[in-house]
């Protein structure tokens, strides 16, 4: 297995792994969004999808651990790369014009990433841990219709809606650079397809976070009335 260690220990291999984990997260975010969106249209669909996701053993004990490992891998590797990259320049420039040749997003992936990580920690404590307690520790009788009311209730709190909104703005910044960067890191670049990948990335990085924000804001205002 030494080739494996050597490949994934190299600068290019690390970025390849980073890109793979990122693409996995991009697909996950889309799936999560589609389920969330149903809460705007149909209480019934949202409840049945949530019940399925929350109780199906394949989702709970196969997909969920993969997701957790994927997230952890992504941000831990993000930190490792950041530290190695910082070490590659020990003395800083007295004057440096980063903006002259690159985008803010591309130079600050660690900061947008850290903000997303803060959100994930919040989301974990706010939603996930109560779910685990509800399902596996306190063991309430199975109520397939509890999800909608619980979710909508979450967005009553304007602070929570504010945190959601800000976090998804940072996700947008992270993905504005990250989406196309992941393809470049894997060597997937072609004069025919790359312009399209960049357009899809731009669309994804705006539309997906905007819809997450929309859902939070929508539930906040529709229930207040």
């Amino acid at each position: 297995m030494s080739w494996f260690k050597e490949t994934f220990g190299s600068s290019i291999g690390r970025k390849f792994a980073m890109a793979l984990s990122a693409l996995f997260l991009i697909i996950f975010l889309l799936q999560h969004l589609i389920i969330n969106l149903t809460s705007v249209f149909s209480e019934e669909t949202f409840n049945s999808l949530s019940h399925f996701m929350g109780t199906n053993p394949v989702v709970q004990f196969a997909l969920q651990p993969v997701l957790i490992i994927g997230v952890i891998f992504h941000f831990v590797m993000g930190f490792i790369l950041e530290i190695r990259n910082k070490n590659a320049r020990e003395v800083k420039y007295a004057k440096n014009e980063g903006g002259a040749n690159s985008s803010w997003m591309s130079r600050n992936m660690i900061w947008s990433g850290l903000f997303i990580l803060f959100f994930l920690g919040f989301h974990f404590a706010d939603f996930w841990i109560p779910e685990i307690i509800h399902k596996y520790i306190e063991v309430h009788p199975d109520d397939p219709n509890r999800y909608y009311a619980e979710t909508v209730h979450m967005f009553e709190n304007p602070i929570r809606v504010g945190i959601y909104t800000l976090s998804f703005v940072f996700l947008a910044l992270h993905l504005k650079h990250g989406f196309q960067s992941a393809f470049q890191s894997m060597g997937a670049r072609h004069s025919k397809y790359t312009p399209m990948i960049k357009k899809i990335g731009d669309a994804y990085s705006i539309v997906v976070p905007a819809l997450y924000i929309f859902i939070a804001v929508y539930h906040h205002f529709t229930q207040a009335i």
Partner: peptide, 12 residues
């Protein structure tokens, strides 16, 4: 040397 973050500064 560091890793590539695909900022594109080099190309510019």
């Amino acid at each position: 040397f560091g890793n590539c973050s695909n900022t594109g500064a080099c190309e510019v």
